[in-house]
Design a protein around this nucleic acid. Structure first.
Lengths: 247, 247
DNA sequence: TTCCTTCATTGATCCGTGTCAATGAAGAGA
DNA sequence: TCTCTTCATTGACACGGATCAATGAAGGAA
């Protein structure tokens, strides 16, 4: 693992970081010996805002976000960047290895991670089915998010992509406000664009349209409020499932 | 589960189908009782070419492809279709449940599947860590394919997408021929288009260009030969990794 | 506070791919 | 074999979002 220019800064000690990982993924009955072995293969990564961590491109990693938020970025030729996924504290990111694109993790806010080589991680997890099961669940959630994202990237208009993105974010980091939500987006317009296969200009224009239609309100660069989540969802290009009667 | 107009046709018996699943995913030492329980939650799906299987949109499924090949399709509003992934015999497809798009599995060739409700499947798998581990591996492979696909859908030109697709297919179903590969694509141009976020016309035009450049040769609708896989890979828009010296 | 850099916004123009339309080839079934 | 349907191919044109360019707002640093 190699860290970028903005790496290193934080406060949290390794034991504190490991405790957060342990609380989220290791069940209470995990034997101490197993816990120690997880600890021995964990590598702490501390990133300032915009700091980035590059990994050995051959070796797949699991990265647990202990503190802050980050993006998993893939690079194609010509410096093109695609944000594969955003991750918040408590989530697990899978960083592919041996792939045809170059992957890295970049901090959206000051961020602390624990990185594990997948092979060793799964070897340990095999001894504790509950851990394996938890990891399996989380990877499936990631796969479903990726599947839903394929639809957006492959078949949706700019407006639908932006609305889908906002709907997803309200579910992950929004706080309820009446019929709607408020949230502070930790990523820039450019990050959103790189996640949705668009440009920052297009994101700005779509935000402007949504603001004018009263679908969203913004304040400063990062605060977004959605007065009525239903109207945002209606613009997301989703399949209208007949059984959406539950209000 | 509900099957479409072209469902039902085949020959293979349920025990034969289950044996293929069992050989691929259940280790030799799996207790008979566990095997029987897997058998009791497995549902056989037999599809003619173009047949499709719809699932309860609330209930996530794991579908093991015993025979043939299939596509996992998501539908958005306005009848738009996105092919999330292609699957060949021996592979495991994750069909999302409770999602904002409607998913189905559609046969590319006559096809036989075993479908399992995820919850019950994982409950059983927890009793056998080796099974859980195998499933986890396969889901991670699917996630990596999805990540690589995000880059294509979000940031690549039509030509790069088609080349990436062909590179991926040579790796999965190609047979080596000198420096290159030959393969019989079971999916139509339209299927490829729906997988790459393009139209069938654009696929045709890109195939025409690649034919003219001598990068590929085609024969009939489905046979594609790639004389030199290197030149195809060069057009895929991949990150040029410095350590690609291994010839 | 004030500066200064980064990020967001808005406008004008261009281009890649979609759309619409017509023709041709493949391959299944009688 | 011949027919008939489906799929692939090719062309003309339109349009959504990219690109290029300029201005303005946020918010961190001193």
């Amino acid at each position: 693992m190699r860290s970028g220019p903005n790496a290193v800064a934080m406060s949290t000690t390794f034991p504190e970081l490991f405790d957060r990982f342990s609380a989220a993924l290791l069940p209470a009955e995990t034997p101490d010996a197993t816990i120690l072995r997880f600890r021995s293969i964990a590598r702490a990564i501390r990133l300032d805002s915009h700091g980035h961590a590059e990994f050995d491109p051959k070796a797949e990693q699991l990265a647990f976000v202990c503190v802050g938020s980050a993006k998993l970025v893939a690079r194609a030729s010509g410096g093109r960047e695609q944000v594969v996924s955003f991750h918040f504290a408590g989530e697990l990111a899978c960083v592919p290895g041996g792939a045809l694109h170059a992957y890295s993790i970049e901090a959206l806010t000051p961020c602390e991670l624990l990185a594990f080589p997948v092979g060793e991680f799964l070897d340990l997890a095999r001894s504790e089915p509950a851990i394996l099961s938890e990891v399996c669940d989380r990877v499936m959630v990631a796969l479903h998010r990726a599947s839903e994202k394929s639809v957006a990237l492959g078949r949706k208009t700019a407006q639908e992509r932006v609305c889908s993105f906002l709907v997803g974010m309200t579910e992950r980091i929004g706080v309820r406000q009446g019929n709607g939500f408020a949230m502070r987006l930790p990523m820039s317009r450019r990050d959103i664009a790189d996640a949705l296969g668009l440009t920052n200009e297009t994101i700005s224009r779509q935000f402007a349209e949504l603001r004018m239609s009263g679908i969203i309100e913004t304040s400063g660069r990062s605060l977004v409020t959605v007065p009525d989540i239903g109207s945002l969802r209606d613009l997301g290009g989703y399949m209208q499932l007949p059984e959406r009667n539950a209000a």
